[in-house]
Design a protein around this nucleic acid. Structure first.
Lengths: 233, 233
DNA sequence: ATTAATAATATGTATGCACATAATTGACTG
DNA sequence: CAGTCAATTATGTGCATACATATTATTAAT
């Protein structure tokens, strides 16, 4: 029997989580209020509050003022994905990262890009195509459009030396955005670049980022065949 | 000038986030300590602490005792995916959900399944194959192996009436697990079930769940062609 | 009986204080 | 000069208290 220090919020957190995971409290059940739990566990209400807030953040509890706290009835598993910059993702796999710049030129993007960004159809944007390697194997192909109007200095940037990924972190403000994950079939060009067969299933990430309501960049990352994105639940 | 109530932790949070997003504090910069910020903003240190903890949780700040707090220099964008049960995922798309049970029988899984779960090679497991529909279009194919030894009553469950997904929520304890996302090419069977061409790229989710160190289930979800998983950054 | 005002209640938050803990700095020692 | 240890310091946490706020329950008024 592991005795848990029920006077720390982590201890209380663990104890409440135990009651949930061991089905002492079932999904949908109301749980005692903070004051009663504090008395029972011999700590301050603040401490119970901290623990219960953490459990609510993690999706285990539903809380509403006055109505009280219940065990979540549809425990959606919540996954937190930390998406690092590409170089770090490669290095985390103990591989050596390098990139090969394929294109960097100002031109008019296809309408699908401008429309998704909410820009006029014929806006000139900076098109950057970049192949990232892990230990000299193709890792992913980055196909990016940058809104030059919102990124002063971007036209002078040397993306062969610094990947657009890292340039943006250093030079663009923090942003919000949409991200979507999908599976695509490799066309001839992607197959050539990434070294698989035409038609191979590729894991793809599409990302649009904004600074407030100003569109910054739209990018598609196409990973080499066999890539998996892993996480813990 | 929007005056923010700097005496609430949300106000402090907003103010600090503003300084980060507007690059008043640059990535890698050290930020003032809690006591000084509390003085400057006219609130208690506890309040500043709450705000800074939230920013650190969200990945904007790196904090270390004694060493102080800095703006995150590699702002890994953090994505929170809430993965609901399949029925809810379909219903959230305003579609009608139904399922069609394809197989439910006790048999010996391929070695890859037992080895990933850490079970003896010839363990009998319950194999459940289930096709989920959204408005009568195939939505995803669920191919699941259940550890009968860890799930009393599972052999009597009627998965035609209740999807294994929901049965597990109601009858199995909360679990931990691994999840991975990948892209696969549809084989003949998947193409037939999901209604695409052989070779079509499919978005796949592999998930293994455990109750402590007891393996519960291993499942692969193969989504119909064109599926995207979306999120906000 | 319906509706509006009011009380009760659980969670949310702010504060001052104290002490715990991790990590760095710097002094001291061999 | 290297290595050890102690002082320092920023964050981490617990607690008592008070008040805020959202929501439900109750009561009064029509």
């Amino acid at each position: 029997m592991t005795s848990i220090d029920t006077k720390s919020w982590r201890g209380v957190h663990a104890e409440l989580l135990r009651r949930i995971t061991e089905r002492e409290w079932l999904p949908g059940d109301a749980v005692p209020n903070e004051t009663d739990l504090a008395t029972e566990l011999g700590c301050a209400r603040t401490t119970v509050n901290r623990a219960m807030r953490a459990l609510a953040d993690a999706g285990f509890l539903d809380r509403r003022r006055r109505a009280g706290t219940r065990v979540a009835s549809h425990p959606t598993s919540r996954i937190v994905l930390d998406i690092p910059i590409i170089r770090l993702e490669v290095e985390q796999r103990n591989a050596e990262w390098r990139q090969s710049l394929i294109a960097q030129k100002l031109c008019t993007p296809p309408p699908i890009v401008t429309s998704r960004l909410g820009l006029p159809t014929h806006t000139k944007m900076l098109h950057v195509q970049n192949l990232h390697f892990a230990d000299n194997h193709p890792f992913l192909f980055e196909d990016r459009w940058l809104n030059v109007a919102a990124l002063p200095g971007v036209e002078e940037a040397d993306f062969a030396a610094e990947s657009p990924n890292e340039w943006l972190i250093q030079n663009a403000p923090y942003t919000t955005g949409d991200i979507s994950f999908s599976a695509i079939n490799a066309d001839a060009a992607l197959a050539e670049l990434l070294g698989g067969d035409v038609g191979a299933a590729l894991f793809a990430v599409d990302r649009i980022t904004w600074n407030g309501d100003v569109p910054i960049t739209s990018v598609r990352l196409s990973y080499a065949p066999g890539y998996r994105m892993n996480s813990k639940i």
